[in-house]
Every structure is written in C-alpha cells, then in structure tokens.
C-alpha cells in the first residue's frame, strides 16, 4: 500500500480518497479506520481526572488567572499548555479573538457590535465573550 500526500492550500479540511482496483473487505476496514480517526486530542484536567478532549468538541480556549481552560458543552477543563503553543497546534477552524482567547469557529452562532463599539461573539453553550478589534480581520479571514 502506498500513502501519498498532496498539499491543497484551498482545502478547508483533510480529505482522504482511497484508490483501489476494487472495493474489498480490506478497503472497507481501511476506510472505517480512517473515518474513526480523531486528531491528536488535548488533555484536559477536571476535578483531578484527565480527559482526552476531541478538538472538535471544544468551544473555546481561554486564559484566566495565568491558567488556560478549554470549554466544551459538558465541562470546563484545565489545559497544561499556553495559548501561544495551542494556537499553532489547533486545526484551522480555531481562531484567536483576543490576547486571552481562541474560539472554535464551528461553534460561533453570531457576532454583535453595540453602540459603544464593543464586539461580542455568541458561542454554543450560551457563552458570550468579547472580541478584540485587532483580531476581527483574522476572524473574517478564517470564515470567508
């Protein structure tokens, strides 16, 4: 079996095409294995328990009191990495919205601007947080 990589800067996600002379049991098993693949999860700590967090389930990652937390729909987890390190490791759907926060764009419901000029982002899980004006063009770039 040969494994090749083709770079596509236009692609918004990883896409795998299996080339084979015919669809055999081996091919089906391979495709199932690929479908079940979870990108290297993040280790989240909550009440002393370590949980492997699927990055797709993370709503936002933020720093508070010099600690980094990741929020999912179920819980909030302590992450033992800096936002700076995470920014490089996270998939493309994550975008920095301020010096202290990165959000999953798949979990954004909408953005709002009030008369005072404060930009708020509404996320799944009833989360509302502030977007820095400096990062708004970056958010736009990821979403458009």
């Amino acid at each position: 079996m040969r494994v090749n990589f083709i770079q596509d800067k236009e692609a918004d996600d990883i896409s795998v095409i299996v080339h084979a002379p015919s669809r055999t049991k081996d091919v089906d098993e391979l495709m199932e294995a690929i479908k079940g693949f979870v990108p290297s999860p993040l280790s989240g700590y909550s009440e002393g328990i370590v949980t492997k967090l699927n990055k797709d389930t993370i709503i936002r990652i933020y720093s508070k009191d010099k600690r980094v937390y990741a929020d999912t729909l179920d819980d909030s987890y302590l992450i033992k990495s800096t936002l700076y390190q995470l920014e490089d490791d996270l998939p493309r759907q994550f975008v920095r919205i301020s010096n202290s926060e990165i959000v999953n764009t798949d979990k954004i419901i909408r953005l709002d601007l009030n008369l005072a000029g404060t930009i708020m982002v509404y996320l799944q899980g009833d989360i509302r947080t502030r977007v820095s004006r400096r990062y708004i063009s970056k958010v736009k770039e990821v979403l458009m």
Binding site: I108, I109, R110, L111, D112, L113, L115, G117, I119, R133, I136, S137, V139, K140, L143, M144
Partner: peptide
C-alpha cells in the same frame, strides 16, 4: 471618526454573520 470606524466594523461584522449563516 467614531461613526466611520463604527460603520467599518459594522460592515465587517455583517459580512461575518452572513458567512456564518451560510456555513
């Protein structure tokens, strides 16, 4: 100044919300 900067952000946010709706 305030109005022009406010409107420029408003337009950007409107475009982002449209993109989010499409997504």
């Amino acid at each position: 100044i305030w109005f022009s900067v406010y409107m420029s952000y408003r337009i950007q946010i409107q475009k982002i919300n449209e993109a989010l709706e499409r997504r």
